[in-house]
Design a protein around this nucleic acid. Structure first.
Length: 501
RNA sequence: GCGGGAGUAACUCAACGGUAGAGUCACAGCCUUCCAAGCUGUUGGUUGCGAGUUCGAAUCUCGUCUCCCGCUCCA
């Protein structure tokens, strides 16, 4: 199993992960290869590359959209088809700004940062002070600690919060945990929400935000969806959509992007039943990664959050062992009734649910499952990538589950003569009604197989001399290169069968 | 934002003060045919951008933009 340690393994260490852990860090050629393949074969491109690109922003190419769509379909089916009490939603990206006040994002989604000019390490100013207070407590300086704590609370509520935090750090002479230096920059505010303005006239519009998570679109629609779908607790609302975060630190290809897609499901349950629902979803979601995405189980692990977000009473991540480290792809969070309660408070509208059986009203509790679609994409790509050395050449194969493969099958005429192309084209026409297939007659047959291997096409059908005589074709399996003969008439049912596995 | 590294063809790289090249890929044709064979041809680069030095800059200097890695924390 993974021996990766949680990022902050030492709770008494207030510097958190600001202290460089001695993790085995070196250049990951695998990521370079993946990035290169992704570009070459049309999975993922750097956004607006001809202008030099834009950090942490990517476009999905012809193969990429197919793969991503398949991942989304698999998720959507697992949620809305396999559960008759889960329904879908597609909420707008822009919402009334009050939503984000209620959700806590306006207040809590901006971080005051400060840099140690000596060590070049960056800290969250509030974490720095909290750590200092804990340190005082450990030393038994209780009075001192509570005095600083009072000043800290005051600073956090100050109009110019960054300035107040800075002043506190300076007056208390808080030193850098890593270098011990007292050499700070100003405290600067990093707002993680993208802001835009409503109204076409410059300067006159109201500020609105690009949503930093899709969840709120679900919460504000709690009643409308429930009533329209005649659902009773427990039930869930599933949604796939874009979210935006002004990340300070971006990177690792499509792992952390400014604009990303979430696949979220919020499951509403009776209060005090959330623990059982949480366990159920935790298991089900892990199974989705191994069974629906076909990810190697040994590369996946749970990570339990000890430090919980303001809204949660339990939280687990599903992590995948990426080439650059074991990182989160999905979060399963027990969000309590925080969100509904807040929306009730801020909107003045009741968010309560009337339980017909119990004859009582309550605010449902929520268990959230939230997968990063792009992260799932990367997870699938990393897991599928394999290469073999063949006479000095590297033969790359994406061993994707057939259900996920962008192209399901390719059809080749063995030669461009004797009517083989015509037979092949006819087969393609027929298959295209049900499957994404490609026809390829260019280059040697081996070259064509390899081209398909690189994009993960699970099956190739070849028209050869025998086809012209007995109406059979060869089917070649991607992962083994094994071949068998089936009749032309069977090709479609062969694919149907293989794709349902 | 701070520190470090890097920008030459779609990809991988060369040219290191004297007219920007190679391989791969792609496309067309010939030939061959079941695992990247061969031959011929074609497309494709104002060397990230802008200044400066110089008779002459991909190359030296400065500025600028962007990307990558690390630092905050997340999906």
């Amino acid at each position: 199993m993974s021996d990766q340690k949680p990022a902050s393994s030492n709770p008494s260490d207030h510097s958190d992960k600001s202290v460089k852990p001695s993790k085995p860090k070196k250049e990951t050629p695998l990521m370079d290869k993946l990035t290169s393949l992704a570009k070459r074969r049309g999975f993922v491109f750097q956004s607006s590359e001809i202008y030099g690109g834009l950090a942490a922003t990517f476009d999905y190419g012809p193969m990429g959209v197919e793969l991503k769509r398949n991942i989304k379909d698999v998720w959507w089916d697992a949620m809305t088809k396999s559960h008759d009490n889960i329904v879908g939603l597609d909420a707008a990206i822009l919402m009334n700004p009050r939503v984000w006040e209620a959700s806590g994002h306006v207040a809590g989604f901006s971080d005051p940062m400060i840099d140690d000019k000596t060590s070049k390490f960056r800290y969250r100013a509030d974490h720095l002070i909290e750590g200092y207070i804990k340190q005082l407590e450990r030393k038994g300086k209780v009075e001192e600690a509570s005095r600083v704590m009072a000043a800290f609370v005051e600073a956090q509520n100050a109009d110019d919060m960054p300035r107040a935090l800075y002043n506190l750090i300076i007056t208390e002479q808080i030193k850098s945990p890593d270098s011990g230096a007292f050499d700070w920059t100003e405290v600067r505010q990093f707002n993680l929400m993208f802001k835009t303005s409503l109204g076409a006239i410059a300067g006159e519009g109201a500020d609105v935000y690009l949503r930093p998570e899709t969840a709120q679109g679900i919460f504000v629609n709690f009643h409308t969806v429930r009533e329209a779908s005649r659902l009773q607790v427990p039930f869930g609302i599933a949604q796939i959509g874009k979210a935006f975060r002004n990340e300070i630190v971006k990177g690792n290809f499509i792992f952390r992007m400014l604009e990303f897609e979430q696949m979220e499901m919020q499951y509403f349950v009776k209060p005090n039943t959330q623990a059982a629902a949480f366990e159920m979803w935790k298991e089900e979601r892990m199974r989705w990664h191994t069974e629906s995405l076909g990810i190697a189980p040994e590369k996946l692990s749970f990570y339990k959050h000890d430090k919980l977000a303001h809204y949660a009473d339990a939280a687990f991540d599903i992590k995948y062992q990426f080439p650059f480290g074991t990182e989160e792809v999905e979060g399963i969070h027990s969000r309590t009734d925080f969100d509904l309660k807040r929306h009730q408070e801020f909107s003045g509208k009741s968010m309560e649910y009337f339980d017909q059986e119990l004859k009582e009203k309550y605010l449902p509790f929520v268990v959230e499952t939230s997968v990063g679609c792009d992260r799932a994409f990367l997870e699938v790509l990393c897991d599928a990538y394999s290469e073999a050395e063949e006479e000095g050449e590297t033969h790359v194969t994406l061993k994707l589950r057939p259900r996920l493969a962008p192209v399901k099958a390719a059809v080749f005429p063995l030669m461009k003569k004797e009517g083989m192309p015509e037979v092949g084209e006819k087969l393609v026409k027929e298959l295209q009604r049900s499957f994404k297939v490609q026809y390829d007659a260019a280059g040697s047959i081996g070259k064509r197989y390899y081209r398909q291997d690189e994009i993960g096409t699970p099956f190739c059908f070849t028209i050869d001399h025998d086809t012209l005589k007995d109406e059979t074709v060869t089917v070649r399996y991607r992962d083994t290169a094994a071949q068998e003969r089936i009749s032309l008439a069977q090709v479609k049912s062969f694919l149907t069968e293989k794709l349902s596995e």
